[in-house]
Design a binder for these strands. Structure first.
Length: 326
DNA sequence: AATAAGGACACTT
DNA sequence: AAGTGTCCTTATT
């Protein structure tokens, strides 16, 4: 019940936002004619082949655990729920999805499957636009990593695409992180004319990216160099280091908070809550199917003498500390 | 039983 | 040679 609730809230909100945006786009609203029934053809046309190959990957046995994890509540759903709580009162989506994962009824499963497919379709469209924009603007898809220049590029592109009055100046000094932290109200304060529209666009962008991060966390970096020229640290060609990978997971608590989380972000202290899962993810990333926590932790220990990671002053099991927190 | 620390050596880049 | 990945012994929780 709660699970389906999330999905419905997420979808209706997505459609609402998209319809709002499509109106401003002065074109025929394609969502009027969307068939809610699962439509593989549309799905395949809508989702770039790269993502589809990732879906395939996710269906392998190696990644079964990931599919299970993302089953209950997608990043999109969680995000949407955060934006505007609907029938469900404020609650922790992490706990919610865990509970839901335990005993899904048959109807619930069916409902989820089609919801999942429709959601994929919607997200596929969003991701297509994001990919185009990233290629065109030469920016990374993750808005939280945009510098002020990237933000301006995105602003200009969005204004141009949707024929909005020029408002980029009001957001001149902001980084992507700043922008992502801003509420709709704050957007409106800076741009009374189109702040709400810009906010909606950014929200959809973020939702798409978070969904992607969750779904493709394993293979996100595999083909991304070709897709997005200005890649972030984790996708810049160099083989990823364990400490970078751990940082990556820690940066996305909505996806991995159950497996690894900050105990004290300022001091760089983190705890591995699910050692087996983190090891699995690391193994998937490095293509080491036999990876386990014993080996992963051995690698972490190598960092002791290099001054990258250490044990915190009060040593606790599964708790480590970055020597140079960001 | 897990986790922690580190030695030793293999492997990949 | 760097950065693990693998395996192992020993100690601790």
């Amino acid at each position: 019940q709660g699970k389906a609730g999330f999905g419905v809230a997420a979808l209706s909100l997505t459609f609402d936002s998209l319809i709002l945006l499509e109106r401003n786009r002065c074109s025929v609203d394609p969502w009027d004619t969307v068939d809610i029934k699962p439509n593989i053809e549309v799905l395949e046309r809508g989702v770039p082949s790269f993502y589809l190959s990732c879906y395939d990957m996710l269906l392998t046995e190696e990644a079964a655990c990931l599919v299970k994890v993302s089953d209950g509540s997608s990043a999109l759903a969680v995000h949407m729920n955060r934006m505007e709580s609907r029938e469900e009162p404020e609650q922790c989506p992490v706990i919610d999805s865990q509970e839901n994962g335990l005993s899904p009824g048959l109807e619930g499963q069916m409902e989820d499957r089609s919801l999942e497919q429709v959601q994929s379709m919607v997200v596929g469209e969003v991701l297509k636009d994001i990919e185009t924009a990233c290629k065109l603007l030469n920016i990374t898809p993750d808005p939280t990593e945009w510098n002020t220049g990237n933000v301006q590029k995105w602003m200009l592109w969005t204004e141009h695409l949707y024929r909005l009055p020029h408002a980029g100046k009001a957001f001149q000094e902001l980084t992507g992180k700043d922008l992502c932290a801003m509420s709709e109200e704050e957007f409106r304060q800076r741009s009374p004319l189109c702040g709400d529209t810009l906010h909606a666009h950014l929200d959809i962008w973020k939702s798409g990216i978070w969904y992607l991060f969750e779904k493709m966390s394993v293979c996100f970096c595999i083909g991304s160099e070709e897709l997005w020229s200005e890649a972030d640290s984790s996708c810049s060609g160099q083989p990823i280091h364990l400490w970078q990978f751990l940082r990556e997971l820690l940066l996305k608590p909505h996806n991995y908070g159950r497996s690894i989380r900050w105990l004290n972000k300022e001091k760089g202290i983190f705890k591995i809550e699910d050692s087996a899962h983190v090891a699995k993810l690391w193994g998937l990333r490095k293509n080491r199917p036999a990876m386990n926590y014993d080996k992963l932790s051995r690698s972490i220990r190598q960092y002791y003498k290099k001054g990258i990671i250490r044990k915190p002053d009060v040593s606790q099991r599964l708790v480590y500390q970055f020597v140079h927190p960001v």
